[in-house]
Simulated assay, not measured.
Amino acid sequence: MTDYQRIAAALDFLRTNFQAQPSLEEVAAQAHWSPFHFQRKFQEWAGVSPKKFLQYLSLDHAKGLLRQQASVAEAAYATGLSGTGRLHHLFVTLEAMTPGEYRHGGAALAISYSFGESPFGTYLAASTAQGLCKLTFAENEAEALAELRAEWPNAALTAAERPSHVLLSRFFARTFSPTERLHLHLKGTPFQLKIWESLLRIPEGQLRTYSHVAAAAESHAAVRAAGTAIGANPVAYLIPCHRVIRGTGELGQYRWGATRKAALLGWEAAQTVA
């Protein structure tokens, strides 16, 4: 069997048997590899670990049940999870909301938003009680707010400044204390979350290529997918996707404009030299 055939067999087995929550050893047996070798190969091909892939399948199935108005308990057990606590953990970790909030279309989720000014123009900051869920540079405030509503269609949006927004303004003013923390409340696929986590490890004033980011996320074979995940980053600047450039040395694309990307990098370089 080729590596592709082995991985395909494991993927088919997971899709068919995820409700039994199979162990790593059971899935590795489908590929005729040791658990250790299978874990490494699966990560290279799928971009996430077998455990994360199984979690994503479980979450997707539970979401379908909740959309059909199944109870949280019914969705948990029908997905093969041991209880509602495990389903709650999956949702909070991967979907940035509880199962109950998802079941009601995010209607129970309260999001406060405010506009602020930075050295790079106006920005929109949006936060839940758990942390900052969106930061975008806003050329047009109405369009930025419409984008926020589209991402969280059933959440209750309120124009209000949370403490995290005050911290953010101090961050741009360079008066942010190293002891302070800005918490993030992100929703994304396991692969996206892993790529965004790798972006957070790029030091200020330094650059990385797309292939470096993919490798740092242990996804060497997924450079194109890494680029897509970088482009979907919902939190500008704090998750520093602007520090990623092409392998040729060109700055490349940026969701909020190539000129702003160059300005961000120049500003950071000046700060680190100073």
Rank of each mutant, 00 (worst) to 15 (best):
S219Q: 07
E180P: 00
L186I: 07
A150I: 02
Q19D: 09
R255D: 07
E204S: 05
F176T: 01
Y56N: 03
T98N: 04
A225R: 13
L184R: 07
D3I: 01
F137I: 06
G205W: 08
A269E: 13
F42M: 05
Q39I: 00
K52G: 03
R86V: 09
A110D: 09
R260W: 14
P35L: 10
P22S: 11
K63C: 02
G64D: 08
E197W: 11
L54P: 00
A236T: 02
R86S: 14
F18T: 08
T2P: 01
K261F: 14
G100H: 13
N233P: 00
K41N: 06
G205D: 08
F13T: 02
A216K: 10
S114W: 05
P50K: 12
R162K: 10
A9I: 04
L24S: 05
I195T: 09
W256H: 13
A216W: 12
Q55P: 00
E143M: 13
L182D: 05
E197A: 15
G121N: 12
F91T: 04
A263S: 13
Y123I: 04
Y102M: 06
S219H: 07
A216D: 15
V166D: 09
R243M: 12
Y113L: 05
L94E: 02
E141Y: 08
H104G: 04
K63G: 01
L124S: 10
E26G: 02
